[in-house]
Amino acid sequence: MPEVVLVTGVSDFVGAHLAGRLAAEPGVRRVVGVDTVAPSRELARRMSGAEFVRADIRHPLISRVLADSGADTVVHAGSAPEGATLARSSATETRVLGTMRLLASCQSSARVRKLVLRSTTAVYGSSPRDPAVFTEDTAPRDPPSSGAARDAVDVEGYVRGFARRRPDVGVTVLRFADLVGPRIDSALTRYFAAPVVPTVLGWDACLQLLHPEDALAVLRRAVLEDHPGVFNVGASGVLTLGQAVRRAGRLGVPVPGALASSLAGLLTGGGVFGGAGQRVRPPDFGRVADTTRLRRCFGFTPRWTTRQAFDDFVHGRGLRPLVAPEWIEAAEREVDRAMARIG
């Protein structure tokens, strides 16, 4: 049972909520949240009970923070910010160098007993030559070569190296599917919030999503229980991109691949050429991860299916469909009634 937990990336939804919930655990004495920017007012309220230290994990100061806090458990939730699979950000340095610095601090700390890494299923890449479902041991045919996904691969590599050098530390790597929820602000949620959604012509990806509540439940268990290893975390079931667009009541516009990313960038406020540090690429092949190992070792099955998670996002955000579903249903009833009159 951990006594003192250090959580990185607490200006994020998941990081802040995790810090708040761990602080409420009876066995946990102290929770220290670290991030470069302070959490928003609402998130700060969520993590009441936890302390916030404004620090950059790239900075040498982080080893002081770690030592002073006396943390025996480190949750690195800041390496894969929400929507990392879609957003291409210039924050490579924060993610990779920050992780290296944090791991160096952990390695020199005698107190650290456990490390939990929040990773992403984006490390599997996405290509037509991959199997439909990735297990933790699947060797990707086409690993990501750039962007946040590439960074996540590098981060996992450094964590593996750390685990080798400190075999006494239990290391849990959680590969999360894309999070969608009413209060998740990611490239993916912004993408679906746009009234017109550009999709890639000729492709309709299978999406596996994850409700943030399930992500938090798994992170919490990983901290409070001992489950060393690599685990995929994703909801059961899939939605195709086209299906998701329709469920959100958006208008999907298939455009040729190269154009799709520029258009998506423009619509989600990332700029046509990704100038604002965010480049959105609509999914073309998608990716589904097998969660058998999670269910067996954690004894936990995500409570929300992909479809339920997505519907919760649509309703929670109050996305207004372009054509109300009631109209379509009314039209159907009208046809049935007309037929009843004839027959």
């Binding site: 299978c206 596996q208 195709t240 329709r246």
Partner: peptide
Amino acid sequence: QLALAEAVAFARRRLLGEYTVDEFG
């Protein structure tokens, strides 16, 4: 009439995304 009713119901499900695709697509 049945065929038409089914076709209309099918069209509604497609339009609203109310169908199931397995993990292989």
